[in-house]
Simulated scan of single mutants.
Amino acid sequence: MPVPKDEFDQLLPCDFSTPEELLEPNEMYTVYEIARLMQGLEPDAAIEEATEAVLLDWAIPWVVHHGDDLVIADPRSDDEPGYYGVKTTE
């Protein structure tokens, strides 16, 4: 159900980091690691499963929006997620 804007104390601009600002150019990341980085956490930070689900709500659209600036790699095994990294000219 939509919520009126005046019910919030503060409205912030929807301004996210670019892939170049968030990710190291020679590294590949899972969407879970990207979600943590977007919150200023280390990629391997331990967080609760419910928190991780909320962070993924931000990270998945970010990956889709920045798809032209990213490369992807298939999982290394069936029990791993895929990987994303900054597209470079190398």
Rank of each mutant, 00 (worst) to 15 (best):
E33P: 11
D6L: 03
A35N: 07
M38D: 01
P4G: 02
Y32K: 12
M1N: 15
D74M: 08
G85S: 02
D79I: 12
F8W: 13
E49I: 15
Q39T: 04
A50K: 02
Y83R: 05
M1Y: 14
C14G: 09
W62I: 04
E48Q: 07
P2M: 01
V54W: 03
I34V: 12
V31P: 09
T18W: 03
D79T: 13
T89Y: 04
E7A: 04
D78F: 00
L70M: 06
H65R: 09
M1L: 15
M1V: 13
K5T: 09
D44S: 14
L70C: 06
E33S: 15
Y29C: 03
D15M: 13
P75R: 13
D79F: 10
K5G: 10
T51L: 10
Y29T: 04
D69S: 05
H66E: 09
D68G: 03
P43M: 12
P81M: 04
T51G: 03
Y32D: 15
D44A: 14
C14H: 15
W58Y: 07
Y84L: 01
T18S: 11
L70Q: 03
A50D: 07
Y32T: 13
R76T: 06
L70N: 01
D68W: 02
Q10T: 00
T18L: 05
E90F: 04
E20D: 11
A53D: 14
E21R: 05
L22G: 05
A46E: 14
S17H: 05
R36Q: 08
A59T: 13
Y84K: 02
P2V: 09
R76A: 08
E20G: 05
F16H: 00
L12F: 10
A46V: 13
